[in-house]
């Protein structure tokens, strides 16, 4: 891992009301890395993402992004700093056109680079270009996922958190999704990837963390986790 990580989380605790979901999480993401976050349903992966994005308050711990303390900062500030989440369940604006959804992706960015950003997203997802005037709510599930990612890219992230981007996609689209993530990363984007497709995520990720009961149960280079007997047993059924 690089010397000064882009994102550094230490001793993070958070939950909902009296229920503690995250019980002391340490995670780091280096610039240019793809880091996979794995864990069974309800392990707290989305909770972690939402705390990082400033959507949920944290009870304890520290979050440093790009050298700044962002623990407890407002989501607007965090997006402006370049930490952007593509949330679970897409959360596109169903009543807005594809174009308006993308424009809102750049809400915290200057208008100057907007046209350039749109061009890039449309080049990445030609499907969205064809449907730019269509209401997002009438897009297919796969198209909505593309839109959610495109909207995230419009925010000019330095670190992109993808929460189950392949959920509900056909096998062919899942394949495309992983190719895309790798390409974005090659272009310099750091990625946190939460996925149910454990094998594929471990193929493209540099490192991975496995969450269990609100703690990091296992972590290390993706290649060695892929060979880890405990992980193979609990997640891959082997």
């Amino acid at each position: 891992m690089p010397e000064a990580p882009l994102l550094e989380v230490a001793g993070l605790r958070a939950g909902y009301g009296a229920i503690e979901v995250l019980r002391g999480i340490d995670v780091a993401v280096g610039a240019g890395e793809i880091v996979a976050i794995l864990g069974s349903n309800g392990a707290g992966k989305s909770t972690l993402n939402n705390v990082l994005s400033g959507l949920l308050p944290l009870a304890a711990g520290s979050i440093r992004f790009d050298g700044r303390d962002i623990a407890g900062a407002r989501s607007e500030t965090i997006v402006a700093a370049g930490l952007v989440q593509v949330p679970e369940g897409r959360r596109v604006f169903p009543n807005l056109s594809v174009l308006d959804n993308l424009i809102l992706g750049s809400y915290r960015r200057g208008r100057a680079r907007r046209a350039q950003g749109l061009e890039r997203v449309f080049a990445t997802f030609p499907r969205l270009a064809e449907r730019r005037e269509q209401r997002a709510g009438t897009l297919s599930g796969g198209e909505q996922q593309m839109l959610a990612i495109g909207r995230g890219l419009m925010a000019e992230p330095r670190l992109l958190i993808l929460d189950e981007p392949s959920l509900g996609l056909s096998p062919l689209l899942v394949e495309e999704m992983f190719t895309l993530i790798r390409r974005l990363n090659t272009d310099g984007l750091a990625v946190v990837l939460v996925e149910q497709n454990v094998v594929q995520s471990l193929v493209i990720a540099h490192r991975a963390y496995v969450l269990e009961n609100g703690r990091v149960a296992l972590s290390g280079p993706a290649a060695s986790l892929r060979a880890d007997p405990a992980l193979r047993r609990s997640y891959l059924g082997m």
Binding site: S53, S75, I78, V79, A80, V86, R91, L96, A155
Partner: peptide, 18 residues
């Protein structure tokens, strides 16, 4: 646009920094 977005999808709006 932000007003229309918040009307239907508050969580999505927060995620883009509204």
């Amino acid at each position: 646009r932000a007003i229309r977005a918040v009307a239907k999808e508050r969580q999505g709006a927060r995620v883009v920094g509204i």
